Amino acid sequence: MTARPRLVRSIPFWILLAGSLASIAVGAWLVVDKLTIMNTTLLDGTATGVEVYGGQSLITVGAALIGAGLVGLVATLFLGVLKSFVPAAPVEVVEPIDWTAEEPAAVEPAEPVVAEPVAAEPVVEAEPVVDEAAPATR
């Protein structure tokens, strides 16, 4: 058993992988959907400015989402490769407890330890400071 959890049990790893796949899927859907709409409306002659110019910008957004998802997938694969190169920490082997052995008797100190009494210093009350330059208030 290793001291560190495996990469498969790492929640941030799975969030990165799922987020990357979701980003690729949404980006691909945007690109394919808007390209299909643009092609059909341009070929029919019924294209409007919203479908043509808005479709171009949404295709650009979809391409950016695909790119971000691919970067996330590469990062996920890179983390997997790096994790395989990191050696696992050695596990300390502990001997099993012998429950049949009797407990040793409690060891009492040879001489009782007594602390020396400490004398406390007397408390001196300070007199209030009066500022004579300040005007008196009533």
Rank of each mutant, 00 (worst) to 15 (best):
A68Q: 07
W99R: 07
S57P: 02
L16R: 02
A110M: 12
P112Q: 05
L43W: 04
W99Q: 09
F78L: 14
A126I: 02
T60Q: 11
S10T: 08
G49I: 04
L43H: 08
E95Q: 13
G54H: 07
V124E: 11
G55S: 06
V114C: 02
G45T: 05
P122M: 12
L58E: 10
W99E: 09
G62V: 02
V8C: 13
A47K: 01
Q56R: 08
L16M: 14
P117A: 09
A105N: 10
A88G: 14
L82R: 14
A75T: 06
V118E: 14
T60I: 15
A18Q: 00
A126T: 13
I37F: 11
G45R: 03
T46F: 03
A89D: 13
N39L: 13
T100W: 00
P12L: 12
S84L: 11
L35H: 04
L43Q: 10
I97E: 12
T40W: 01
P104F: 05
L35N: 05
S57G: 01
P104A: 09
A18H: 01
P109Q: 05
A75Y: 04
A22E: 03
V93D: 06
A28N: 01
L16F: 08
S23V: 00
G67M: 06
G69M: 04
T100S: 13
G27W: 01
P117R: 11
G49H: 08
P112E: 08
T48F: 00
W99Y: 09
P87W: 06
A115G: 10
W14N: 13
V8K: 15
L73T: 03
E51C: 00
E125R: 13
D44K: 11
T36I: 02
I97Y: 10
V91K: 04
V8Y: 14
L77Y: 11
P96E: 13
A28P: 02
N39K: 09
V81T: 08
A64W: 11
S84R: 15
V94K: 12
A47D: 03
A101F: 05
V74L: 14
A64G: 07
L79F: 12
F85Y: 14
A105Y: 03
T100V: 00
A115Y: 12
V52M: 08
E111D: 09
L30R: 02
L70W: 04
L43K: 10
G69K: 03
A106Q: 09
T60V: 14
V31R: 06
L79G: 06
V86H: 03
E103V: 06
S23W: 04
V113K: 00
P96A: 11
L77K: 03
A47Q: 07
V94S: 09
S23H: 01
P87H: 09
S10P: 03
P96S: 11
I15D: 02
V123K: 06
D33E: 08
A115I: 02
E102H: 09
L17F: 14
T60P: 00
T46P: 02
L30V: 01
A47F: 05
L21M: 13
K34I: 00
G54M: 04
V124F: 10
E103M: 08
A25E: 01
T46K: 07
D44S: 15
P104V: 06
E102D: 14
L43M: 10
P90D: 13
E103K: 12
V91W: 01
T48M: 04
L82I: 08
I24L: 14
A18S: 12
G55V: 03
